[in-house]
Computed example of a mutant assay.
Amino acid sequence: MNGMMLCFSKIKLHGELHLNFLRSFHDIVSDQQQSFDEKIASLLKFGLNVFSLDIAIISEIINNQYIVRYVITPDNSLAVGTIFDLAGTYCVHTLAASKALAFHQASTSRIAHHPCYVNFQLESYIGAPIKVGKDIYGTVNFSSPSSSTPFSQQAHDYVELFAQWLGSEFARKSANEQLLKNNNTLVKLESIANIGSWEVDLLTSKVTWSEQTKRIYQVDDSFIPDLASAISFFKEGDSRESITKAVESGMQTGEKWHLDLELVTAQKQTIWVSAFGESEFVDGSCVRLFGTLQDVTESVLLREELKSKQAQAERMLEDRSMLLTKISHELRTPLNGITGMLTTLLGEHNEAKRTEKLKVALRSADN
Rank of each mutant, 00 (worst) to 15 (best):
S152I: 01
S42W: 13
P225S: 09
Q294C: 10
V50S: 03
E211D: 15
V200L: 08
N64Y: 15
L345W: 11
L317H: 04
L345S: 02
G133S: 09
T204S: 15
L43P: 05
G337H: 05
Q121R: 12
L161T: 11
L346I: 04
Q267Y: 05
E241F: 12
A102P: 02
F8G: 00
H18C: 00
L259E: 04
L13I: 09
D135H: 11
T253N: 11
G277V: 08
T297A: 12
I136G: 03
L358T: 13
N119M: 04
S328T: 14
W165D: 02
S147C: 12
F46L: 04
W209K: 03
P225I: 07
A97P: 02
K206W: 03
E248Y: 13
T344P: 00
H258R: 06
T265W: 02
T343K: 06
Q32D: 07
L362H: 13
A352C: 01
S299K: 12
V207K: 00
L95C: 04
R215Q: 14
T213N: 05
P129H: 02
E190V: 03
T297V: 10
N194R: 03
T89P: 02
T297N: 12
E177A: 05
D295F: 10
A352F: 04
S321V: 02
S285R: 14
V92M: 10
V247H: 14
G254Y: 15
S107Q: 07
D31K: 13
I195Y: 09
R303V: 00
H93Q: 07
K245S: 10
S308P: 00
V287W: 09
T139F: 15
L22Y: 14
T149H: 06
V282I: 10
Y125N: 05
L227V: 13
P150E: 12
R23Y: 14
G284N: 10
E236C: 01
I40H: 14
A313Q: 11
V207T: 14
L48E: 06
M251N: 09
S9D: 09
R215N: 11
D226H: 11
K326P: 00
G337S: 03
G88Y: 12
V360N: 08
G47C: 06
S24Q: 13
K357G: 01
V219K: 09
Y125D: 06
M322D: 02
K309N: 07
Q312V: 00
L302N: 10
T94M: 15
S148R: 06
V187W: 03
H93G: 00
P145Y: 14
F233G: 02
H114V: 01
C286E: 04
D226Q: 07
I111A: 15
Y70M: 05
S205D: 05
E123G: 02
V29N: 01
R172F: 13
L19C: 06
S205Q: 05
E318H: 09
H258D: 08
V29L: 12
H258S: 05
F84M: 04
A97E: 08
D157W: 15
Q32T: 12
E304G: 05
D260Y: 06
F21R: 11
S222M: 05
T108H: 12
W257L: 01
L122W: 07
P115L: 04
H26A: 08
V296T: 04
G337I: 03
F46Q: 09
Q212W: 05
Q267V: 01
L323I: 10
G127Q: 07
